Simulated assay, not measured.
Amino acid sequence: MASFNLLYIFDPLCGWCYASSQILATLADRWPGQLNMLPSGLFSGAGARTLSTAWAAHAWSNDQRIEAATREVFSIAYRDKVLADTDTAFDSSPINRALTAAQQIDATLEPRLLRHLQLARYVQGENTSSTQVVARLTAQFLIRIGHQIDSVVLARQLASCEALARQTDERIQTTQALMNRFGIQGVPQLLVRVDERTHTLSSKALYQGPAFLMNELRLLLGSEVA
């Protein structure tokens, strides 16, 4: 089988990215060393915004369409605790930085942490635009799998560590350059780099289940994909 890498472009606060996270888990289980997580910055930096009543209504309407199409749960707790809190921001920066910190411990932790934080937001109703909330949830995740970390220290790092902020921004800039190169405007998007060529998979591959995904990959990578 040809040498390949999987490039997953996402934003942590994108509902469609949450809906594709089970397929992401399939990729992470099957090819942990070849999966590259690429944060797009869609809802961070200039893309961050105030969580207004109008934006919350727009987000909830969109989330309901996603749930109907994919059966991923967007709970009432999420609607009432997260979207109703118009004193907070809609900003994926804390999660992006937490993912970068996790990647520096072990790159294979990143997709698992993303799923953990997405479920905390969309099912449990945790405000994952809050640095303190993201630090607490990330520390819980890392401690559970054997990494000792203090959530208070992590919160300070997510809020004010210049090196972590710079590393996260560099990842986003690299992703945006890749998106511009291939004319990608939305997320999530899965790219497959085979030897020196990069292929864009159909968005259906992220929502139609593992069998559909494996068939799409088999077309690119050959019959060794089971």
Rank of each mutant, 00 (worst) to 15 (best):
D150L: 06
R65S: 12
Q132K: 13
R121G: 12
A25R: 12
A57T: 14
V192Q: 08
L42F: 03
R65W: 11
L99M: 13
P12C: 03
I23N: 01
V194C: 15
T168I: 08
S40Q: 05
W31C: 10
R193K: 13
E224V: 05
I95A: 06
T26D: 10
L114R: 14
T138H: 05
R166L: 15
R136K: 14
Q208T: 09
Q34I: 00
N96D: 10
T108I: 03
E196I: 13
D80P: 08
L6T: 04
P39R: 14
S40W: 04
Q132Y: 03
R171H: 13
A211F: 05
A84G: 14
L117Y: 02
G41M: 01
L221S: 05
L201H: 00
L35S: 15
G47Y: 01
R71A: 08
A205L: 14
D87V: 14
R121L: 13
M214L: 11
G47E: 07
T100I: 00
Q64P: 11
F74P: 04
A226L: 09
W55Q: 11
A211M: 01
A46Q: 12
N36F: 10
A159C: 07
A163S: 07
A139K: 07
L113K: 09
T128L: 04
Q22E: 13
F74V: 04
R79I: 04
I172A: 05
N36Y: 10
T138M: 15
Y8C: 07
A102M: 12
C161Y: 03
F90P: 02
R30M: 10
G15T: 12
V133P: 13
G47C: 07
F74A: 04
Y78A: 08
L113S: 02
S40V: 03
R121I: 02
P188R: 08
D169V: 15
L113P: 06
L201K: 00
A120V: 06
Q118L: 15
Q157Y: 05
P188A: 09
Q148F: 06
A54T: 02
T88V: 00
G33R: 08
P94M: 00
E67C: 12
I145E: 12
L221W: 03
Q189L: 01
A57F: 03
L154C: 12
D29V: 07
I149C: 13
Q167T: 14
L117S: 05
R49I: 01
M179H: 05
L119G: 12
G186Y: 00
R181E: 08
Q189I: 01
V187Q: 02
A107F: 10
S160I: 03
E216R: 08
N62Y: 00
I172E: 14
I66H: 10
K81P: 01
L190S: 03
Q185V: 04
L213W: 15
T198C: 07
A56N: 00
I95S: 06
H147A: 08
A84W: 08
R30V: 07
Q208A: 13
I149F: 08
P39L: 06
G222R: 08
N180D: 13
E196G: 14
A107I: 09
Y207L: 15
G125N: 01
F90M: 05
R156A: 07
A211E: 13
P12L: 09
E67G: 12
D169G: 10
Y122S: 02
P210E: 07
A57R: 14
I149D: 03
